[in-house]
Every structure is written in structure tokens, then in C-alpha cells.
Design a protein around this nucleic acid. Sequence first.
DNA 1: CTAATATGCAACCATTTGGTTGCCTGTCAA
DNA 2: TTGACAGGCAACCAAATGGTTGCATATTAG
Lengths: 107, 107
Amino acid sequence: MDDVFKALADPVRRQLLDSLHQRNGQTLGELCEGHDMSRQAVTKHLAILEDANLVATRKEGREKLHFLNPLPIFEIADRWIEKFEHGRLRALDELKKNLEGKRDGKG
Amino acid sequence: MDDVFKALADPVRRQLLDSLHQRNGQTLGELCEGHDMSRQAVTKHLAILEDANLVATRKEGREKLHFLNPLPIFEIADRWIEKFEHGRLRALDELKKNLEGKRDGKG
DNA sequence: CTAATATGCAACCATTTGGTTGCCTGTCAA
DNA sequence: TTGACAGGCAACCAAATGGTTGCATATTAG
């Protein structure tokens, strides 16, 4: 799970995922377009996404096709974020009250 | 949003959020317990969480109380993760098919 | 074969990150 | 007041990160 969080921490990598979400199966060259950095830099980012299992690849001739794997994202949503969701609507109110002051309901 | 992703990228920081989720309003000293690192290190992590608006604080005497703010997490769930959710159930199947081979429905 | 295309590998570099330590300030208790 | 407790600030350091460049390999087109 840590790999996934780390992989998602970089805006370039999130952009790459977005790009694959819009059009799956892009080659390395296609994924490089629109990024103001070298092909190697993009390759490294993609490698990190692959290690985190967020992207899977297949070689087709001399091209490498990249496919989005959203499962790790779902896992984060289900196993991690879901935990914080219980009092969602009251969350802001509770925070305000906590910052205002009374430590228990005691004072 | 980038601040939040970056803040969540570190396991220590996620652990701190978990800790606050279990018991809100902990002091710095309390949050340090169980972490095998100096108080200063934890302070830095908390500062990053504060910058990302994931933690809010209040001073009470000589203590600093820390409160979880889950709203940025909700935003990520709603604005970012939600985008990938559409074909959730078919996602794994699609990935398999994509990796197997046919590029379009054409071959 | 030759040349162009698509990608891979490795060395290198600056900056950021995550941690340390030492010392200072503010608050509570005796 | 004095000492202990809770926390803040700043300098410093090693390692990870994000990027570069140069060159090598494999595939396709002529």
C-alpha cells in the first residue's frame, strides 16, 4: 500500500494515470507528449507506477503499451479512506468545536 | 491537493492520522509515543500534515493539541478517486483482456 | 543491409526529504 | 524563585527523489 501512496504523491504520475484513464493502452512516446521533460524522466515515473501495480504493460513490436490498473486505487478507497468516513457530515463542525476549546464535555 | 497527496505519502504521517482518528486531540508528546524517532522528527511530520490542512492544532497551556481534519481526504475521495470508479467491477477483466492482446476489436 | 523509430540502461547531478542534535522559550508545580 | 515539563527553532547530515545526458538494443521501413 505504501508503494501506491508514494506513487500517487507526484503530480506528473497522477497526470499519467489521468492520461491513461482518458485513453488506455498508450505507448511510452504518446505518454511523453505534453510533458516538459525527457523521455527517460517519464520512463522512470512509469516504472514507479508499474512497481505500485497502478500500470501494467505489454510489448507490441517495438512499442510498449501502458494500461491503467485502478485496483490499488480502489483498495485505498476501501481500506484506508473508508475508515475516515463515518462522521463525514459532522466532521467540520466537530473540528470547529474542538478548536474552540472545551476539552471534554466536562467544563 | 498536491500537498495532501504528498502528506499522505509517508507511512509515519498516515500512522499519525490513524492515531488521531482513534483518539482526537492528542498532544505532541502523546503522538510521539510508539514512534522510534525523536520528538523533532514527529514535529516535522505534524507540520507537514498541518500545512496540508489534515491536522489542526490548538494550544492549551504548555501543551499543543492536535485534531484530525478529514476534509482534504474526502476531497481526494470525491474529486480524484471517484473519477476512476466507473467500471469498477469490470476493471480487472478489462485489464486482463488488454494485456492478452487484441489492440482493437479488429484483429 | 541501412536508416529511422521506439525503447532500455547506466552514470551523473541538484534538490528535497527525513532524520539528528543542541539549545531556547514558555508554562506548571513546589 | 527554581526546577521540571512541553514544545519550538535552527544547523546539520545522509539518503532518496526527480531530473539530465550519452549510448545501446530491438524492431520496422526502404
